[in-house]
Design a protein around this nucleic acid. Structure first.
Lengths: 346, 346
DNA sequence: TACAAAAATGTAAACCTTTACATTGCAGCT
DNA sequence: AGCTGCAATGTAAAGGTTTACATTTTTGTA
């Protein structure tokens, strides 16, 4: 049976209050007494019971991180950033994934209630606000890439629109006209924003493909692979594919290779997120850089800020800019289309 | 202020014991009373305080997962597997990373004590046993790829030796004689096991390179990249590089490309772990398959088994076999060495 | 109808801390 | 010597739950 504070007090010949005082460092205890108590604590390998402490202090020193999924490097990076931030402040991380399922989000939230001091929630697909309702108002929450107009919560959202627009413009500048996109999940905020950006650039540049080159993926490698096969089945096929995340771009690359096409000579491909492997795969992947691990860190820092009262009342709404990251998977094409080229050769 | 069980009891006109009973489903409460209490609970949005519950029940329904690092897809997959297993049993995950630093492991362990019902610890580098000492004996712990002779803890260890041996034999079968390896961190169990496997195959096949082709990496992409540059500087360079994990293999591929060499025509490369991207990069990476997410799931299932008393007393020691996963990054070479070939051409 | 047994519910202790407030002991002062 | 005031320490309540045991209510039976 684990020893408690009364065992320590007894052995040290003092009251539990005094032990508690040396435990919490704060109050003035005679140096001599402190030494003795510390010695006993060490000897007994005593450690305070966090549940009891949490019960009376109403804090747990843990922060909940609820992500839509745990597949792939993107979320891994978010967790890494969050973990680093959390460790810096002496907090810890309770991680969970929701698979974009309202039931699971709710279960996780219910679990976290009372177990964590704050919550970081990433839910681009499920409207999270409703689920948040039965959480105490005092619990700091930051919404990461969530669909919301509610300004009551802190929010952090990636500039998917701007990033996709910039990337599309880049491809247009390269001479591409038939630019296919592979979108993310249905009803997914990130996907929608990126699609808006793509469309905006296409329309602005009078390059309407009227949706014919928009293909549905779901942010997984396999969907990138399959969707790319679909795209390549078109004759003539688009000269560029813009996958709405890097995982799908990587899947698409596999499909392209299998088709015997060279990248970027025969077709250009780019992604979104700029996950760490993007620069290591070959050809190195042109992508829209998102400071992924910073995202996790920012969210954590924000809730910790709240916790430590430094910014108690004001909610912050951060818009994270993206940056084009040009590598070697995209190439300028001559204005001659693939088709024209073939005819020319013939 | 959050409402407590007494508020509910009061409002429902019953005692807290009765409320507690309906909360825990177990005992017999008159249907009518139950309905009423349930209604009040719903109305008040009452949720039991986990700290209080944890205090008296001595359980938290959380499991700690302490990993050496959070970079890259390997750990991401471990977490994913663990998360799935944990969710299936209604538990939750407290994740932390140690950076192979004894101090950090200790801090995380201290934090987890009393906050989790069990711990899964992966620590290939730091001897974890000492740190585990001041954890209660009653806390189920499974050691994942830890260096230990102690049979008191449950252990799961990957067959790094066998996997590396098999891979090395495969390369030898392909005709390679100069096979360079990029190892993992100093004093890292996984790296050491893989190195043993490599050496064993090399010696067995009378192919002693007496350590001249063993290069030090640290399991990161960047180290794979840098070490590969070093390796390629050799004249003539080895015909195959065996990186002790996929991250380093991916880094090495980048270096090889930069050198203008073709894979596998000019040089073969293979990795270890078979992370999900391995099959998507190009050329698809030959690797030693490790059931990564299963590792996380197995560990979790094991501790949950312990928790539910099904296998209370016996410790299990699982040895996880690996499997060669052949793809296109390695190629048979003619027995003529690069050098001979050059001479031949000249 | 009365009583026993069973079912439903209530009471209170226990889990382990922190901390406001109370007490003790002692130095320094007049 | 007696008092004040302060430093050090102790006492006990509070935090929210579960559950053994006690009590009340209901049901069934003679």
């Amino acid at each position: 049976m684990r020893s408690s504070i009364v065992d320590v007090a007894q052995k040290a010949g003092v009251s539990i209050a005094t032990v508690s005082r040396v435990l919490n460092g704060s109050d003035k205890v005679k140096a001599e007494t402190r030494e003795k108590i510390l010695a006993v604590i060490h000897e007994m390998k005593y450690a305070p019971n966090p549940a009891a402490r949490g019960l009376i202090m109403r804090k747990t020193e843990a922060i909940g991180l609820l992500l839509p999924d745990l597949h792939g490097e993107f979320f891994s990076e978010v967790i890494r950033g969050a973990d680093e931030a959390v460790q810096k402040h002496g907090y810890h991380l309770v991680v969970s994934s929701s698979h974009n399922d309202p039931k699971e989000i709710e279960a996780a939230l219910r679990f976290m209630r009372g177990r964590v001091d704050a919550i970081v929630l990433m839910s681009p697909q499920v409207n999270a606000e409703i689920l948040l309702e039965n959480l105490p108002k005092s619990l700091p929450i930051v919404l990461l890439n969530c669909r919301t107009e509610n300004t009551h919560y802190d929010t952090i959202v990636i500039d998917g629109f701007g990033g996709a627009r910039e990337m599309t413009n880049y491809l247009l500048d390269l001479g591409h006209r038939n630019i296919a996109v592979i979108t993310g999940g249905e009803n997914n905020l990130e996907s929608e924003e990126r699609l808006r950006g793509y469309r905006s650039a296409m329309i602005e540049r009078k390059n309407q493909t009227s949706g014919t080159l928009e293909f549905k993926g779901n942010f997984t490698e396999i969907s990138g692979y399959e969707t790319a096969r679909e795209i390549l089945a078109m004759k003539p096929h688009p000269t560029a594919i813009f996958a709405f995340n890097d995982s799908m771009a990587i899947g698409a690359i596999k499909a392209i290779r299998e088709e015997g096409l060279r990248i970027p000579a025969d077709i250009s491909i780019c992604g979104f997120d700029d996950v760490p492997v993007a620069k290591y795969i070959s050809p190195s992947l042109t992508s829209v850089h998102v400071p992924i691990s910073d995202l996790g860190a920012m969210a954590i820092n924000r809730v910790i800020d709240r916790l430590t009262k430094r910014s108690k009342d004001t909610t912050a709404h951060v818009f994270v800019p993206t940056k084009l990251c040009l590598r070697s998977s995209c190439k300028k094409i001559n204005t001659m289309s693939n088709q024209e080229k073939e005819e020319f050769v013939a």
